[in-house]
Design a protein around this nucleic acid. Structure first.
Lengths: 165, 165
DNA sequence: TCAATCTTTCAATATTTATTGAAACTTTTG
DNA sequence: CAAAAGTTTCAATAAATATTGAAAGATTGA
């Protein structure tokens, strides 16, 4: 396979993967495109390479900036904005975890806490028990996220994987 | 809040959470309904409680069975099928991880391995390096999944969280 | 300042994904 | 064995999500 083909293939693969995890397919594709670009790229480059509209390209580039997965760069003598991706994949993983924790795990924890305030009754006992079981799991996943976000890659995986051999 | 209200609220919350992670909202809602049901429930119960059609209820019940998150149960003197959810949330987590690993992580690993076979050139070097970085991360996540699927809850979280304090 | 260039917004539209419901199929029971 | 009761399928439809593109808004530099 030729390099350009492989890059396009990767864009598709990463787009599919993202979309299976609730990430907008185009956003994942833009991310993929920048991950395999050697130089920073402008909006036009993204539009052309992925065959998407300006609005779409712009929106997803902004969103990737919000996730802190890509950076804006200036090219001297050019007023367009250029973008490059963070390529340290451990950093990328940390930032995705950080964002999803904030957007999804934390609101869920808040909701579960609220549900425990249900009016007490004989029948509410098992309901609250179930909610508390879920809460415990979510709290632990949250703790795991915190750990991951602070840890060094080698330490994180090295220790865990050895431990359970 | 009254118990019935709280259960309905939980169904909404769990449905939203699932849908943010690429799980069909109705499937997550059916799961939630069974998680907070004290007794096993039949298709009619699901249809009525969630206000969905027979086809939809049936399909998502089947899918939850495929994921091994709910069980079929017989009630004597009733020919309908009844369903109850696995309530051990650590088991639930393990089974979800197992399924997503199989459906998403493993195909991704396969694709990444293929991409490394790109025709070699000066410019392919950095591309392959990026793919290998992603591959390393995915392989480690895969290892983490394996660890989690085999581990006891207390051991898994206890050791990890203490370690990185 | 203002014209040129680039970026953002958002209502209209297209695409994807989910849902319905009736017909076909299966199982049980008298 | 046939009717009743329950389950599954799937083409049609609805709903949710994503995309477009043109107009409005910024920014730059002469």
């Amino acid at each position: 396979m030729k390099l350009e083909q492989a890059k396009q293939q990767f864009v598709q693969t990463w787009g599919n993967f993202g979309s299976q995890w609730g990430i907008n397919r185009s956003m994942a594709q833009v991310h993929a495109f920048l991950l395999v670009s050697d130089h920073s790229q402008c909006t036009e480059d993204v539009m052309e390479s992925l065959g998407i509209s300006r609005g779409n390209a712009n929106m997803n580039i902004r969103e990737l900036m919000n996730w802190n997965l890509i950076y804006k760069e200036s090219v001297v003598g050019d007023r367009r904005e250029f973008f490059r991706a963070e390529k340290d994949m451990w950093e990328v993983a940390k930032r995705i975890v950080k964002e999803r924790k904030r957007r999804e795990l934390e609101p869920l924890q808040h909701h579960l806490a609220e549900l425990k305030k249900v009016e007490q009754s004989y029948e509410s006992i098992s309901f609250v028990a179930t909610i508390e079981n879920i809460e415990r799991l979510v709290t632990r996943l949250d703790g795991l996220s915190n750990t991951l976000m602070k840890a060094d890659e080698h330490v994180f995986f090295g220790k865990i994987l050895n431990m359970f051999k």
